[in-house]
Design a protein around this nucleic acid. Structure first.
Lengths: 224, 224
DNA sequence: CACAAAACAAGAGCAGTGCTCACTATTGTT
DNA sequence: AACAATAGTGAGCACTGCTCTTGTTTTGTG
């Protein structure tokens, strides 16, 4: 009852090796350093041969992107298992971004031009962390006092603006009220913005030793 | 007493044309669509000739980045002249990002690989908007009640984390206290994170008509 | 076991990139 | 008119993604 022939095994092994090499290339030289020709070279094979395994460079990119999303989600989940809090989530993201800056850029930086990630392939892994944050915020918010007192001047505009997000969450089986969604969005964009700023050097130099403290202070300032 | 010879005039004109073409190429095809060979083609000249005007593709990129920083800063300044408020700043950034998404990506997205923007060339234009935000926040914060009551458990850690930012501001002649810097950072990363998310499609589809409302709601939620 | 079918690999080739180098026009100044 | 600075040429190198044709190897099946 062996349902994997040696051929299939070899194929899977080669595919795994390609993504391994691809990940290493992204880690070393960024997304622009990802070259199928170089992969072929490293595999000891002629360039056209790798097209047996991946349809195009973009397809390999999709694989790497999905991998990266999954990897950071696993790490965040692990961190939350030990300390279920917003700082824990943010700091584990920051930590991952420090270890894999180019993979971070791959998923949270400028999208690769002319390349649209197939939503069905990446939406679920790509939203795991944000979903986790939503649930965290939902737990922390006391259900009764849902709508906050101030800034209730234009509720419909805000509610409408949050529409697409709410729908996205519903598709994933999450049912959060607008206050939670709003809060989640705020915290989320702040975290992503902060880590991007640090990773991309937009705040200038000198942050290397204080990154975690900065993120901690940010979360505190957000009141989360 | 003409201090510009026709030759110099021609040179400047050509340089201006190159950056014009370069900007257009970035607008149309993103940073990867920027090709010196294509620029040469459009100039009706052989490819190596453009190297008389720009030392390398990276140098042209630096020019375009400086341009983009300057352009968005001008627009923000104009918006603030009419309505001096944080939403005004954020919404004018958002608006600019919608009109020039690829230029936005150029300055606030993933940095171009292997390319380090010469700080001296880009630091001043690159920080104008953030400086404007700092001053806005400083004006709004009542000087006496500087340090906010809560989250004063670890003041030195936060102060130290904000150190590099404070130094950067001092170099630009700005002298803000830590509470203002902290608040500025929070609002800044939230704005950048939100616009990036919208521009890069990280929130999924369906936001086109509600982007401004979303940013407004975000600023409101931040209490700015 | 023999054989067709499927999978894999090779190698040449196309169109494009950044960049360099030696060489020739063109232009402005002495 | 002679000379030097500047502008432009065209060939060439090393690289990219990707395709197509040819040959080889492995595999499942009659």
């Amino acid at each position: 009852m062996e349902n994997t022939t040696p051929r299939q095994r070899a194929r899977l092994e080669t595919e795994a090796q390609i993504t391994r090499i691809g990940n290493r290339m992204v880690d070393e030289d960024g997304v622009d350093g990802l070259s199928l020709r170089a992969v072929a070279r490293e595999l000891g094979v002629v360039s056209s041969a790798v097209y047996r395994y991946v349809k195009s460079r973009d397809e390999l990119l999709t694989i790497l992107i999905r991998d990266a999303f999954t990897q950071i989600a696993e790490e965040v989940d692990a961190a939350l298992a030990e300390d279920r809090s917003v700082p824990s989530l943010a700091l584990s993201m920051l930590d991952w971004s420090r270890r894999y800056p180019n993979r971070w850029a791959l998923i949270y930086g400028t999208p690769v031009p002319d390349y649209e990630a197939p939503r069905q392939e990446t939406v679920v892994p790509g939203t795991r962390v944000m979903v986790a944050l939503t649930q965290l915020i939902a737990e922390a918010s006391t259900p009764p006092m849902a709508t906050s007192a101030p800034s209730s001047a234009e509720p419909s505009r805000t509610a409408q603006a949050l529409g697409p997000l709410r729908e996205g969450l519903e598709e994933l089986g999450i049912d959060a009220d607008d206050a939670v969604i709003m809060r989640t969005l705020t915290v989320w964009v702040a975290i992503i913005g902060a880590v991007n700023g640090l990773r991309f050097g937009q705040f200038g130099p000198g942050f290397d030793d204080v990154e975690a403290d900065l993120v901690r202070a940010l979360i505190a300032d957000l009141g989360a």
